[in-house]
Design a binder for these strands. Structure first.
Length: 976
RNA sequence: GCCGGUGUGGCGAAAUGGCAGACGCACAGGACUUAAAAUCCUGGGACCUUAAAACGUCGUGCGGGUUCGAGUCCCGCCACCGGCACCA
């Protein structure tokens, strides 16, 4: 670290103003009908007091940071990057007169605290509270203008009570395809055979009436169970037994989104597929809305693209293939129904349900089966036909993990089942294979293979000598049709009823799909890669489910939701946080907690960390509300933002549906398909059910770029290039830290840290300081300071020392010169425009230009200097407040704090130049720069250009063919 | 392989199709100082010429194009970063 001299006493200034803002609650945002204290600066600025209705409040601006997980490691330099950007905007919007909501909280459920508990026995709550305290200290020392009265933590019982409440809403809802939205489960209609009314009217009712009571009860119970099962199968939160990602090291299952390259996203531990009974959330019901509504929000293309890819919509058709000599059919999904005539074999996934039974494929290998088709996938030798179950098991075992199975280089493996299917368009008998390159989890888990026009099928067909039939002709005849997967023209595709020959791919697709639908052989289908959200975890430190398990008379286990008034369901206290010996979640250890007096048992899984972060932005609106997760009027005021819809339409183009909500959300890109997808899903369910007023939660979202180490590598402990924010604050102060983070470059860019760069902006702040203070008095202060090294802790002493420093005598209340006004207004213009466009780096450079210029002034007009401080305030609020206060104590006239001072407006008239410099080009090359009057006509410019001494030599002996004059910009003489 | 982004001095970066490199870092020279630090001033893309400069030539990843004029627009490549990846 540098040993440079202190530029200015930030270590006195910063704690002083942080305390002032805290004491005066400067940054409190007021809800509709909330009591606003008369003396609050917001009340004074807007001339409001008492309880104010939403319509009387200023326009809202909701600016949100992704709340942090309070880890034991504390803040890293990446956190303040986004937080500073949002803070600058929040302060700017406040100055512009908005009612700004800028909250902070803690995403505090999570694995590290739990792992620490397993190791030490210390309750995760204690660890979490300690970490939150440390994060709070660090964040507060940066002087962010958060409304701390709305602080929340996902681990607060007052908070997760409502997380559980939202789960109950999901549990008690279903997605109605007819209305295309979530509805209360009570609107679910039962199919005829389960519908009580139609049963009562049916002949069966008579039969039932004749039964003995005992038998009748048993029948009724059966029916009742079926109805319950049907209803449970439709809920947005449901239980299913399915292969899920199990991570042994973490001792829990993980969602698809939490598994990266076959490893856990957290910790990088291996994961394996394991069938388990788990809670799922039906996010797939919202696949289409999650996709199309991306068009209504202002996010970066790359982020939208990531969500689009994750949702993975593809249009195609399902086609039914009859299995030869069997009752069964195989349905496939294909995006290329136009190639159906080229389907020469079929493949089903090893996990396909037809395989599992082992009965669907009792076929032996026919005598004419080529040897190539009989190779045992394990021994790689010619074998007897094994059972299908064995084959599929072997194929999966061979793949070992899904990671290996999806490895690109991996050679495809498979075995002929002995069975054939009939290609419905040409009656061809085509072999059915089991192969590991077909995934059970996508589409129908089975494909029709068209080796001529699909890379994978092509590769597989070559390996096993399967027939390859061309059905698409490339439009460029030089291209080989074998393995040609692009669009082209259909050929060899006709039967007695239909011909696709000669049709371009798009038309062929449509024609064959229509024909299949007509023949009841298939139908148009849309498939998504998106899977339902695996929502339970085998952890302690998470929200318990508000669910109990019961047994019916026949001993069948079923689940039931607890009532809303039994919330929150608190986790039990434990002494041992490990999973049980039988692999049950840690909550299962608390027998007294699990077993309820009525004989039912609590669900022992907990919710994933994402649950709490799915809706925290809503709780901030009304964080103290004990009666609702958010009050209706309050939600309307903060989320609706009707007044801004027009502005937004122009911002992102004319769209049918515009989604307000959070005005600006800033955070890392790592949440692209996790938090941001989950939160949108929950929000849409709450919207459908009428609990929120917007279809999307976050209107504008910006990802801050990663900050790399000084060596240009990602910061990590092992590289030893981690920069600790506490050290930077100690050395340069919060204002310099904030300024540097913004000056490094555009917010979204990846940028390397450079501590010398911090010194640069620190010097700039020093220059601002010296522009405003009297140097002689500063010397007096320095002498006093050496006697009082403890001043930083002593508020009174701090004030005393700071008061020793007097205002620069050159600052007086005199009229500014035109040049001074021009410098100021150019700065106002640039800073204002840059803030609107989130260009913080260039805004700062504009202020540097101002300061460099102002340093040369003999006189410094109060009005100019004061206005400059307002521009600086969002970036370096402590310094700006301190200097503003000095202006106040000397001149009076202004408020003691500038937080709510109205943002300055620039006057274009002041920026008009009387004389301007115009570049003169000859044949497009710069030859001179001439000074002309700003009002010079084209003729004036032409004359001046031709008369330029530097230009003349280039015109000699040549004729001017053309003259291009852009008024006020340039002159270009074309000669030949 | 597919999708998205980015390529500009020694470094971080600026530039509504109109003077490329604002602002800052690092560096060099000077002032102040017994000296240093801090501060203030000055300089700066490369090449050529030169005592120094002016003039000149080249210059925004590479190759083309549009234009009076291209870092900016179009076409074709290359490299790096991020995401997805046997998704039929």
């Amino acid at each position: 670290m540098s040993s440079s001299r202190r530029q200015y006493p930030f270590y006195l200034i910063e704690p002083k103003w942080q305390k002032f803002w805290d004491d005066s609650q400067s940054f409190r945002a007021f809800n509709p009908n909330e009591e606003i204290p008369v003396n609050h600066p917001f009340a004074q600025r807007h001339k409001l007091s008492g309880k104010v209705a939403a319509t009387q409040l200023p326009r809202k601006f909701y600016i949100l940071d992704m709340f942090p997980y309070p880890s034991g490691a504390g803040l890293h330099v990446g956190h303040p990057e986004g937080y500073t950007a949002t803070d600058i905007l929040a302060r700017y919007k406040r100055a512009q007169g908005f009612n700004v909501l800028h909250p902070m909280g803690w995403d505090s459920f999570g694995l590290p605290a739990e792992q620490y508990a397993v190791k030490t026995g210390q309750h995760p709550r204690i660890t979490t509270e300690q970490n939150i305290a440390n994060f709070t200290r660090q964040i507060k020392s940066l002087g962010f203008s958060y409304d701390w009265s709305r602080e929340l933590a996902t681990t607060d019982t007052d908070y997760f009570k409502w997380t559980q409440w939202i789960f109950l809403k999901l549990y008690n809802s279903w997605f109605n395809p007819k209305t295309n939205k979530a509805e209360p489960i009570s609107t679910l209609e039962f199919p005829k055979e389960l519908d009580m009314e139609s049963i009562a009217k049916s002949p069966k009712a008579l039969e039932l009436a004749k039964l003995e009571k005992k038998d009748f009860d048993a029948e009724a119970q059966k029916l009742w169970n079926k109805r319950r099962e049907y209803r449970d199968s439709k809920r947005l939160a449901y239980v299913t037994e399915a292969p899920v990602w199990w991570c042994e090291q973490l001792g829990t299952v993980l969602a698809n989104e939490e598994v990266v390259d076959g490893k856990s996203e957290v910790g990088g531990f291996p994961v394996v597929r394991k069938p388990m009974r788990q809670w799922m959330l039906r996010i797939t019901a919202y696949a289409e809305k999650l996709l199309t509504d991306l068009d209504t929000i202002d996010w970066s293309d790359s982020l939208k693209e990531m969500q689009r890819n994750w949702i993975g919509r593809s249009e195609g058709a399902e086609v039914k293939f009859q299995i030869l000599n069997s009752e069964s059919q195989i349905t496939v999904f294909t995006t290329r129904p136009d190639t159906l005539f080229g389907a020469t074999y079929m493949v089903i996934a090893p996990e396909h349900p037809l395989v599992k039974t082992g009965k669907i494929f009792p076929f032996d290998w026919p005598s004419e089966t080529p040897d190539k088709w009989k190779i045992d996938p394990i021994s790689n030798k010619l074998g007897e036909r094994p059972s299908m179950v064995s084959i599929s098991y072997q194929l999966l075992a061979l793949a070992k993990s899904d990671l290996e199975r999806t490895e690109l280089a991996k050679e495809k493996n498979g075995v002929f089942t002995g069975a054939f299917a009939i290609n419905p368009v040409n009656g061809e008998k085509i072999p059915i294979w089991i192969a590991d390159y077909v995934l059970a989890s996508y589409g129908t888990g089975a494909i029709m293979a068209v080796p001529a026009h699909d890379e994978r099928d092509f590769e597989f067909a070559k390996k096993f000598n399967l027939p390859i039939v061309q059905v698409v002709q490339p439009n460029d005849p030089k291209i080989n049709w074998q393995g040609f997967t692009d669009n082209g023209t259909a050929i060899n595709s006709s039967n007695a009823e239909i011909s696709l020959n000669g049709l371009p791919t798009a038309e062929a697709k449509k024609k064959i799909t229509d024909w299949l639908e007509e023949k009841n052989l298939g139908k148009k289908t849309i498939n998504y890669k998106l899977r339902d959200w695996l929502f339970s975890r085998q952890r302690y430190w998470g929200e318990p489910f508000p669910i109990v398990w019961k047994k019916d008379a026949a001993g069948n286990l079923y689940h039931e939701a607890l009532s809303e008034n039994s919330l929150p369901v608190l986790p039990p206290d434990l002494t041992d946080y490990k999973p049980t010996a039988t692999g049950e979640p840690p909550l299962a250890r608390a027998k007294d907690w699990v077993n309820l007096p009525d004989g039912s048992q609590r669900e022992t899984n907990t919710m994933p960390q994402w649950a709490g972060s799915c809706w925290y932005y809503l709780r901030y609106l009304d964080s103290k509300n004990g009666n609702a997760f958010v009050g209706k009027d309050t939600e309307n005021y903060w989320m609706d933002g009707v007044a801004e819809i027009l502005n937004r339409q122009s911002a992102i183009g004319n769209r049918q549906s515009i989604a307000p909500g959070v005005d600006l959300y800033v955070g890392g890109t790592e949440h692209a398909v996790l938090h941001l997808l989950y939160a949108r899903f929950w929000h849409k369910v709450l919207f459908d059910l009428g609990y929120v007023s917007t279809p999307e939660p976050f209107f504008k979202l910006v990802n801050q770029g990663l900050i790399l180490g000084e060596d240009g590598q990602k910061m990590s402990k092992s590289r030893g290039n981690v920069v600790n924010p506490d050290d930077i604050l100690q050395e340069f102060g919060a204002d310099a830290f904030r300024l540097y983070e913004m000056f490094m470059g555009p917010l979204e860019m990846v940028k390397p840290w450079n501590t010398q760069g911090v010194e640069g902006v620190y010097r700039f702040l020093g220059r601002v300081w010296r522009l405003f203070v009297d140097e002689k008095s500063e010397t007096a202060y320095e002498q006093a300071e050496t006697l009082h090294t403890e001043a930083a802790e002593d508020t009174e002493k701090q004030k005393e020392l700071l008061d020793l420093i007097l205002l620069n005598g050159e600052i007086t209340d005199i009229a500014a010169t035109p040049a001074q006004l021009k410098t100021l207004h150019a700065c106002i213009k640039k800073v204002t425009e840059d803030l609107d466009a989130l260009r913080f780096n260039t805004a700062i450079s504009a202020m540097m230009v101002f300061v460099n210029e102002a340093n040369t002034w003999q006189t410094k007009p109060l009005a100019v200097m004061k206005t400059f401080l307002q521009l600086l305030a969002p970036f370096a609020p402590h310094l700006a407040e301190e200097l503003w206060a000095k202006l106040h104590s000397t001149f009076g006239q202004i408020a003691p704090s500038l937080t709510y001072a109205a943002w300055p407006k620039f006057d274009p008239a002041l920026l008009v130049e009387s004389e301007i410099e115009i570049p003169v080009q000859v044949n497009g090359k710069l030859r001179d720069v001439i000074k002309v009057s700003a009002t010079a006509t084209q003729a004036d410019l032409e004359t001046a250009a031709k008369n330029s001494e530097k230009v003349k030599p280039f015109l000699e002996g040549k004729t001017i063919k053309k003259i291009i004059i852009v008024p006020k910009k340039m002159v270009n003489l074309i000669v030949g």
